[in-house]
Design a protein around this nucleic acid. Structure first.
Lengths: 247, 247
DNA sequence: GGTTAGATTTCCGCATTTCGGAAGTCAAGT
DNA sequence: ACTTGACTTCCGAAATGCGGAAATCTAACC
C-alpha cells in the first residue's frame, strides 16, 4: 500500500497529532486549517478536533486575529525539562564557565536530536559576531563541528538521514576522519568566518555529547587553536567524561 | 462528577498523551510504566500504547537498560521552531549584542509560558557567576524580574496560577507596582546576589515580551543601574517595540 | 447594506479505532 | 530453578474518533 505502515502497537490519533506538530514546525509561524488539510491529507473536522486537543494542552496556539494555528508555549517548557535531565547537562555545565574564562570563546554543549545539533547549554564568548548573530540553538548537525562529530559516532541510519538533508554532503571518508579525530574542526559557511572546534564527551564507550568552542577567525587562528583552545577543550571534555563515568 | 470536564471538541486520546508528557516533565528523568499508571490512573496497556506512540514520534524516549520512559529529543527541536517564530525574537535579537557591549551584563529576552518565564534569547555577560551558574532557560516567572513584569501585564487567571506556585507570594500591590514601573528590579534568592532588571517590549498596546539585564551585585550597583543599565535597557526596548510595530 | 466566497466550526450517525482484563514474556533477585 | 515484578501483547467489546454535511463567521466586493 502507498501509505507507510504504522509502527506496531501505536495509536493513529497520537500519530496524527504528532504529525501536526511536525507540520507546524515547518514554514511560517501560523498555518491555516485548509493548508494543513492539504499537506496532511486529513479532512477538516478531523484536523480541527486534533488541533483543539493540542490547543487545550498548550502544545499549539491559535492566533486570535487570523484563526491560524502555530506551535505553542508548552513546548519550550517541556524541552527545557528534557535538556535539564540529560546526565551530560548537569555534568558539563560547571566546566563551561572555566572553559570560557580560559579561552574567551563561545562554549557549547551539543547533543544530537535526529539530524539536528541541539545546544543543551551555551555560554557566549567575548565576541559573538555582529548584531546578526545566529541565536538559534538547534541547527542541522552537518553545519556544525559538534554535529559532525556526533554524526560520525551515530548509527548509520542517522548518518544517511543527515546526508539526505543536504545537497553537498560529505563523504564516508570525511566521516571516518571525524570519528578518528580527537578534535573536529569546521567553519560554517553561514557564520561569517567563525571557526568551530569540537571534541567528544564519552559515557563509557558511548559518545554522549560534544563540547565545542567557536569564535571569530581573528581569535581562533591555527596557532591559537593548537596552543590554547584545543588543549583546554580536551581537558574539559575529559573531566566531564570522568564525571559522567562516576554518576 | 469528580473528574474535570474535558474542553469541548477535544480528543481523550490526545489529552492523555499530553498528560503523559506533563507527568514525564516532573520528577526524575525517566519513569517506570507502573509509576505512570499510579500517577495517571490509566491501566498499563493503555499507557503502553500511548507511550509507544509518543516514542515513535520521538516526543518520548525509552532508556534501553531500565525500560523507563522520559521526555524525548524532538521536544527541543519543536521548541526552537516555536521560539524562532515569535515575532519578538527576530525583532529583538540584533539589539542584544549592542546591549551587552554597552553594559557588559547578561541580556535576556523573556516571554511567558503559563506561569514560567521562557528565555527566547540570552546573551551571556562578562561575569556569569561561579561555575554553578543557573543555565536553565525556563524559570518560575515570580523568581525573575522579567517574569514579574510579564505577570503584571498578564490575565488575572495567569497571575493567580502563578501565586499558586509559591508560598511567599507577592501582593496585589506589588503587582500594581510592577505594572506601573518602567523598570522592574529583582534579586533572586537563589542567584547569589545577582540583581536583575527588566522592562517591557510592547507590540501595540500589548506587552509582547520583557528585556532584561542581570549580573553580579558588584557591577549592578544602584548607581550603575541608574546611570548605565536602565537607560540602555529602556532605549533598546523602545527600539525593539518600534521594530515590532513596523512588522 | 446586501451578497458572495472561503475559512472555520459544529453536528451526528456510523464504524473503526482504542480500550483494558487477561495472558505472555523477560530479567533481576533469591 | 523458582519467584516476583515490570513490561509487552492479545483479542473481544465498546466507546471514542471519524468525516460528510451543514452551520457559522468574516472579509472582500459591488
Amino acid at each position: 500500500m502507498g501509505e507507510s505502515e504504522a509502527p506496531r502497537g501505536t495509536l493513529g490519533t497520537v500519530r496524527n497529532a504528532a504529525l501536526l506538530l511536525t507540520l507546524l514546525s515547518e514554514g511560517p509561524s501560523h498555518h491555516a486549517l485548509t493548508d494543513l488539510a492539504e499537506r496532511s491529507g486529513m479532512p477538516l473536522p478531523t484536523l480541527h478536533r486534533l488541533l483543539r486537543s493540542l490547543l487545550a494542552a498548550k502544545l499549539v496556539e491559535q492566533d486570535p486575529e487570523s484563526s491560524r494555528y502555530g506551535l505553542g508555549p508548552q513546548l519550550p517548557r517541556l524541552a527545557e525539562r528534557y535538556i535539564e535531565r540529560l546526565p551530560v547537562t548537569s555534568a558539563a555545565t560547571p566546566y563551561l564557565v572555566d572553559l570560557r574564562a580560559t579561552t574567551g570563546a563561545t562554549v557549547t554543549l551539543v547533543t544530537l536530536a535526529g539530524t539536528d545539533a541541539v545546544f543543551a547549554d551555551r555560554l557566549d564568548g567575548e565576541d559573538v559576531g555582529g548584531v546578526h548573530r545566529d541565536a538559534s540553538r538547534v541547527r542541522p548537525a552537518l553545519e556544525t563541528a559538534a554535529g559532525r562529530l556526533l554524526l560520525a559516532h551515530a548509527d548509520d541510519t542517522v548518518w544517511k538521514d543527515a546526508l539526505a538533508t543536504t545537497t553537498d554532503g560529505p563523504s564516508a571518508d570525511d566521516r571516518e576522519g571525524w570519528r578518528a579525530a580527537e578534535i573536529v574542526r569546521h567553519t560554517p559557511a553561514a557564520a561569517a568566518s567563525r571557526p568551530e572546534i569540537a571534541t567528544a564527551i564519552r559515557a563509557g564507550s558511548r559518545v554522549a555529547a560534544a563540547l565545542g568552542l567557536s569564535g571569530p577567525a581573528s581569535q581562533l587562528t591555527d596557532e591559537a587553536i593548537d596552543q590554547l583552545h584545543a588543549p583546554h577543550l580536551l581537558r574539559a571534555a575529559a573531566s566531564i567524561s570522568r564525571t559522567l563515568g562516576r554518576a
